[in-house]
Design a binder for these strands. Sequence first.
DNA 1: AAAAAAAATTTGCACGTGCACAATTATTTT
DNA 2: AAAATAATTGTGCACGTGCAAATTTTTTTT
Lengths: 354, 354
Amino acid sequence: MKRVTIKDIAKLANVSRGTVDRVINNRGKVSKDVEKRILQIAKDLNYKKNILASRLASTKTHRIVIVCPDESSDIFWELPKKGMDKAIDSIKDYGIIFDSWKFNLFDKEEFKTQFKKAIDSLPDIIILAPLFWKESLKLLEYAKKKQVPIITFNSEVEHDSILSYIGQNSYKSGYLVGKLINMGLNHRDEIVMLNLAHKATNAPHYSGKYYGLIDYFKDNALDEKRIHLYDVKNFRNEFKLKLFYQNLKKKHPYLKVLFFTNSRAYKLLNLLDEDEINKYIIIGFDTIEPNVKLLKENKIDFLINQNPIQQGFKSVILGIDYIIHKKSTQSKQYLPLDIVVKENVEFYIDETIL
Amino acid sequence: MKRVTIKDIAKLANVSRGTVDRVINNRGKVSKDVEKRILQIAKDLNYKKNILASRLASTKTHRIVIVCPDESSDIFWELPKKGMDKAIDSIKDYGIIFDSWKFNLFDKEEFKTQFKKAIDSLPDIIILAPLFWKESLKLLEYAKKKQVPIITFNSEVEHDSILSYIGQNSYKSGYLVGKLINMGLNHRDEIVMLNLAHKATNAPHYSGKYYGLIDYFKDNALDEKRIHLYDVKNFRNEFKLKLFYQNLKKKHPYLKVLFFTNSRAYKLLNLLDEDEINKYIIIGFDTIEPNVKLLKENKIDFLINQNPIQQGFKSVILGIDYIIHKKSTQSKQYLPLDIVVKENVEFYIDETIL
DNA sequence: AAAAAAAATTTGCACGTGCACAATTATTTT
DNA sequence: AAAATAATTGTGCACGTGCAAATTTTTTTT
């Protein structure tokens, strides 16, 4: 069962390889009837381009630009980076160049600068973590004008220059947290949802979580008035963070659940005593090292894993797919929301992908 | 930054491409000093073979044989199949031939026949689901004699002709189940562990689960005497299965947890009434369709996902890796044990891998 | 209807490696 | 030391596609 090649098609169509090539790759300059004939034959023979030969012969060098936070500005971002590096490594023969425009997670201006630079360099595609919502939308419009397609990951933004989104579904993660909370809740207990983040960053990102949680309570006839949402902007100042917690305790005598909306649970928890922590059901996100440590010490009860490594990996693979196959289906891919407990955490730490 | 090619090395070493080729691929017939020189230069330049060109030029056709149960004999086996098909599809240009020797899950003799046939066909590698323990060991010895390397998945067997194992860790899954059970258990409740399987199949497979569960109880100062293990060999006979359950109920007045050791929870559950089921905490394995249905109906509380799709996918990828790169590190890769509940099941059903 | 222009098609080299056979050099045998 | 043999090294074609220059065919213009 020999593979069907361009040559086979050419012979059957009574034309040369070059003509078939032009049809297959839409290079034009082919008469209508010949084109039709060739396409029919290609279809009949179920011709599939040999990607090895294609990439080997191609002189074009494609370029993918990655725009995401510097992993030194926040520990979480080491994870997508791992996945991306893995993917990049796996296709080193395909002649695709990767550039990285990093920005400090807390620096809105730098985000704008870097994203703009990325667009202006006119790459074949940009892989973007659109952390700042408003600014992203503006620049996405700019990208559209410049005809640079974009794959987003981690944060969900809607825009028609976005080819695909890879990441978690915030709403559903909130809903899932509802379930986890409910497994150990009494009727009076209060739930506090802590958003340790700058106001600047992606708003829908965590509000989705909030509404998911609320809806779980509604769907299960629980009183959602017991849920309290707090934005904690000064989380990087330990003193203020601790002060915030002292006030929180006073305000909520029946406080039972601490739900951290992102990977920064450890920032507060590491400031508290053991018996203080043990009173609560504590839920956070992402299996970064300080969180895992707390999980193993029974200080965190659940971590939701949003598969950041896979997010990075798949974003890059998708970018490659787009370039190689010119696949351009607008799509969303929500990665699993894994429930991580002490007893299965080992499987979610040093994922060896592929 | 142009890629380093064989030609570059040849020029620097003052030899021809052919000589470099012979060194790189250990084809012999090269004088010692030239070989040394070339290897040094290759190392200095950090030469990496271009896999595209290599595979394109290669005339060799490699063959991978898959030996696993026919998916029609048990619904579970559709899942690894999906993963395998995906992996096979992704490398269709690499000129690797796949053969499949299926066997009926319940037929020990057929397993032996097919596995033996696979070995005798002398493929480059066999990907095997070693469901029958004793028979596998015997034939693995035979494979060793015939020098056929083997990758196993799904069931863990120890043998030195096995290159890698991809699958779950039974002990740890039992341990994890302990945790899940414990979240909703009272001190008197009885746990019943049901092994719906022929005696013939892989013994350590489920006994690992048993010991894991026991150990969780011990580690957490729970009374492991409340755990009762039953082998249910006649599970395919609905009448006998129901009878078994009736007896079970009589025997265990404080029965609270039904823990199914494999994917066959639905076989019993579909015979029982809704209010019967609601009394229990029910835990099973694998997100096959009938189980998912029960999970969505709140009839199953937890499913442990052993990532069968990924198991299939990774087994094949590993086989390809072995053939292409001659990587031959003996290794085990335990895939995550995902906790699946109604609220996150959607992410574990129709996994779109890569 | 010949010349010019445009459109369609063919041809040949390139990509980097595998592999078989030819050519050269080194070693052994006569 | 020439001849025979062995060991080593070089050369050319192949894999299937991309691409552009060269050629042929068709259409338009004079």
